[in-house]
Design a protein around this nucleic acid. Structure first.
Lengths: 356, 356
DNA sequence: CTGAAAGCGCTTACAG
DNA sequence: CTGAAAGCGCTTACAG
């Protein structure tokens, strides 16, 4: 008998949750379980966190009590006491973009397999919100942080550096990162598409995007394209920016608009496949020849790019792999191991198809 | 001077985080801030959580110290002490399905505006994982829980009922819910589409889905369709189930397959728009007349359904609204208010277009 | 293999 | 408006 209170029946009323002294409803705690199993609380803790350290007899008694009382450990108390959380914050600009969702899936699968949980935050392409999110999420004392992009407010960077936990910035690959980095060079991707379009003989090339301030990676693709065109000579570029989210409807309307206002444009590189597919569907409905009258290219390599007629030239990015690698790097550092590389360029593949 | 330690300079070494007695690295805590601002810890806590309760002089001194030390409050300690968390778990079957993402966005916007954060968990359509997730997430002592669907394992239901926090089950509308419910009747939606197809003269109607065990809402649409067809007489149905995720490629392949193996089928109701669009694109490429040779219908009312040629007949579900309403109901209960209704049927709209 | 003590960093009453 | 004491539910050393 470890408790002074006589314990007759593991389910006796005295072991049930009750009002605490401070007047709030208390759930079943470790102590209730300990009393029910007639062991000390530490033994219950061990039976749950390191079962092999407890004798089989006690372990069984404890598990039975856990079951009987419906005990759910309070993670907050555990995390506070041990200074360890198994929750990893993941910060992305948007969830409505399939691309981020696929990266997130890669992250989720990887960290979940290692026993971690994801705390997802979306910034809606707002760097102030990103800073606020980072601050709040760090308040949960996470073992590491995953965040999209390499551009942040100075205070975000400071916060993350001071937090003294591993950080992986994913999506684009670049020279300066807070800690670790996985992604691809969007400037190179833009240049690669420019090279492709020039090689196929297009000379007046438009780039179509939405909210290019926030989505600076699209801007980088445009910059890469523009620079390459300028370097090669003999061709020119135009930038088209439309309001709204980067959906198919924007591509649909953009095609009609551009053909009217800029009839000299002979090729369009869209900021993503969705818009590009929207443009292809519009061309189809209106009987506009693609690529005869105008060529269309996308970015991301979504499955649908291969299904439209004509099939869409695009650049495939290894999205899920980015998520997996980012998570793997983070986990290895959390475990105190040193990842083979601090920065990984996952690259991209240009898929020339019928639309160019 | 409230501390016995003489405090000369707010940034003096003695106020900096140091190794604690238990040997682990300690971050800046409330006590560091209190010492730096020369007030008691409770006052700091108040200045942060209820600024109006603290005099302006102290508030300014405290805020300066917070800034100078880069203090980030430990949410776990706060939550443990106050028995309140501002994190709400959201459990969904999948993130790769746009539909859930839109619901999640509605939830996120609503709860974030109220100062809560979302802890997202994905079950991958596995009820065992759902139970495990629910258990873990409840360990964070959340003020409420949002989860997709009305079908769960008995132990999940028990867990959530015992947790004694408000719960909203969203996506489908049904008679039995744990606590509150927002959604639409998928049986009715299936019946509505069947009625539409019968009215247009189709007599051999196929339903095309993937993983119909897990995605039981698709199954419910099929059941609704099947029942309605049976009731009306004069027509018949077939169920086609394909492996893999419910993407455009599945619709693309399904169309080719079904036309060969079941040439008598004259209309197809797909489990979602993505598959249906895949089928339309396939028909387009192969020159199959839609709806002449075969009619095609989808479900969800995604923007792209309006852009393909022929435009796709579909059923629009108010996805974002489901998220918003689910979150609003939960919040009102968290605040101790009683939501106007415990169950909300958000309904759906059948959009007859050219593909049928 | 098992336990008594102390503490994680905050907040809730209760005083003044 | 401000503070000293106690406690939230767990875990980490330290003993035996």
């Amino acid at each position: 008998m470890l408790e002074t209170t006589p314990v007759m029946d593991p389910m006796s009323a005295s072991l049930r949750p009750r009002e605490s002294r401070r007047g709030r409803r208390t759930a079943v705690t470790l102590n209730h379980v300990a009393a029910a199993a007639q062991v000390s609380p530490i033994t219950v803790s061990r039976a749950l966190n390191a079962p092999e350290a407890v004798s089989e007899t006690l372990r069984e008694r404890i598990n039975a009590a856990v079951e009987a009382l419906g005990y759910v450990p309070n993670r907050m108390a555990g995390a506070l006491a041990s200074a360890k959380t198994r929750v990893i914050p993941v910060i992305v600009p948007s969830l409505s973009n399939v691309v981020f969702v696929e990266v997130i899936e890669g992250i989720q699968e990887t960290i979940e397999a290692a026993g971690y949980q994801m705390l997802l935050g979306s910034t809606d392409y707002d760097l102030d919100r990103e800073a606020a999110l980072a601050s709040t999420l760090l308040g949960w004392a996470p073992p590491g942080v995953l965040l999209a992009g390499l551009r942040h407010l100075p205070r975000t960077t400071t916060l993350l550096k001071n937090a003294d936990v591993p950080v992986v910035e994913f999506m684009e690959y670049g020279a300066r990162c807070i800690d670790m980095n996985v992604g691809l060079s969007h400037v190179q991707a833009g240049a690669a598409m420019a090279a492709h379009l020039l090689a196929r003989g297009y000379r007046r090339i438009g780039f179509v995007g939405t909210r290019m301030c926030g989505d600076y990676r699209a801007r980088q693709r445009y910059d890469g394209m523009r620079r390459h065109i300028a370097e090669m000579g003999g061709a020119s570029d135009v930038l088209f920016e439309y309001p709204g989210g980067p959906g198919q409807d924007v591509g649909w309307h953009a095609l009609g608009d551009i053909l009217q206002t800029h009839p000299d444009v002979d090729a369009l590189f869209f900021a993503n496949d969705e818009m590009a597919v929207g443009a292809v569907l519009r061309a189809q409905r209106d009987g506009i020849a693609v690529p005869g009258r105008i060529a269309i290219a996308g970015f991301n390599g979504l499955p649908m790019s291969a299904l439209v007629t004509p099939s869409l030239t695009t650049i495939t990015s290894p999205r899920k792999q980015i998520g997996e690698q980012a998570a793997a790097m983070l986990l290895s550092r959390i475990d105190g191991r040193c990842p083979p590389q601090r920065r990984i360029d996952v690259g991209f593949v240009l898929q020339p198809r019928s639309s160019t």
